[in-house]
Nucleic acid binder design. Structure first.
Lengths: 244, 244
DNA sequence: CTCCCCAAGTTGTATATACAACATGGAAGC
DNA sequence: GCTTCCATGTTGTATATACAACTTGGGGAG
């Protein structure tokens, strides 16, 4: 079809110099006017190429000084964590939820440091089993600050997940996740229909809206039936529910 | 100091309409020429505002039709996965690596579907134990395509991690991660100094450079000593190594 | 030697203008 | 009624031009 636009071609050329190692981090890149002369493009075209590479983290620009190759970003990767109902549905499977508890209870002492609430203060507590095609796959144990989600107990959590409800009433400003491999307590084993020595994958999730903690959830999964993760561009079938 | 530039002010106004719900997903946004007339800016300024909001995922633009508010991103969260050496060092702890194997071997049959290599083709295989303050915390079992990293076997992996080396010689274009809770095989237990029923957290990682798979790593961690994850803005101490 | 000023160069924003490539709706023709 | 064509409108790229805000280095004055 179309050849690439000029600004995109210029971006690609600059990126080649960087990736090849010819222009290491800190190296000064030709100025807009130099690129204009060298490549026979307008200054606005050169500006756009450099500006986009800057917004992509490849370059650093200093007004009056020039444009420099950026330090490489730290090598880290991202793993996507999805709401269990969405995940199951994305696999073309049936999601169901069984609500085992949904009531106001005093906040246990070990959770006090997790919330902006005093010991014994009333909090909402829900225990929900999520099933995929009739098989338990996640046991959700969640505590919620009533001030942040006053209507929490009025919900039918067989129709909407707590995650979805909370996302709506208390927009997420921050989240924390920790993943562990553990031997679960016996009540979790019973809810998830797990054998005696089977490990569980536990995801702990805490969310904030503004500066205040909204909820703390422990999400337990049977190691034999669940895996966590999705690749960038990967088939969804590889993640989540293990093959039978 | 400076008032915001015109394009930034226009961006902010459009974003306000979106965030407030006045302009829901799918809603048509005023065209560049309409914004030019309504706001008394040049068309290039309007174009820049709309273009940047588009690259930020807020708008969708169709040549000839117009500009529309984008659907909100699916509710998902991101978990950061870091190179084990960086992670340990970030905690102010000492990272060491013990190389238990580093050689060319025929690719096992179960890995053939994972690489663009034929069964029995030569591949690089490394087994490395990573220690934190002298305690084993990760057992890394990695296979590498020799065509993608020809110098792999020449490295001293007590000084640089395979992850770091591969990131340099074969720039990452794609990555896949899957996290599982498993009972590890006995050789993994031995390397990681784990008890008989203790679960392991296993991270499987595969990376591509361009269209070709570079490496497949299984990263085993003792469930009692390692947790995976970091919050956005959280204290690093909460993640990775469990408190003694 | 230090400080100040100025010239040259660089990035940053804004506008006007032009042409290209596409979408859409209405009108005309069959 | 269906198809084709055309006018209008929209996005996409490119250029020339202008002014602003900053950096840097060199030279001159005290």
């Amino acid at each position: 079809m179309q050849p690439d636009p000029l600004y995109a071609r210029l971006k690609a050329q600059i990126l080649r110099e960087i990736v090849s190692g010819n222009w290491p981090p800190g190296r000064r890149v030709p100025s807009e006017n130099e690129l204009t002369r060298q490549h026979g493009v307008s200054r606005m075209t050169a500006n756009r190429a450099l500006r986009e590479l800057t917004s992509e983290g490849r370059l650093v620009r200093l007004r009056g000084s020039g444009t420099f190759v950026a330090e490489p970003a730290p090598s880290s990767d991202l793993l996507v964590i999805r709401n269990i109902a969405e995940e199951i549905r994305a696999r073309g499977h049936r999601h169901e939820a069984r609500v085992r508890r949904l009531r106001r209870e005093p906040l246990p002492p070990d959770l006090v440091p997790r919330f902006a609430l005093a010991e014994g203060a009333a909090a909402f507590h829900s225990l929900i089993v999520h099933l995929e095609n009739g098989r338990p796959i996640q046991f959700e144990d969640r505590w919620v600050d009533p001030a942040m989600a006053p209507g929490y107990l009025e919900n039918d959590f067989t129709r909407i997940t707590p995650h979805e409800f909370l996302s709506r009433v208390a927009p997420l400003s921050r989240a924390e996740h920790v993943v562990e491999a553990l031997l679960p307590p016996t009540h979790v084993r019973a809810w998830l229909d797990m054998g005696g020595t089977e490990p569980a994958l536990r995801l702990e999730r805490r969310t904030w809206s503004g500066e205040r903690v909204v909820s703390r959830a422990l999400l337990w999964h049977p190691g034999s039936r669940y895996r966590l993760g999705a690749a960038i561009g990967l088939d969804i079938d590889r993640a989540g529910s293990k093959q039978p």
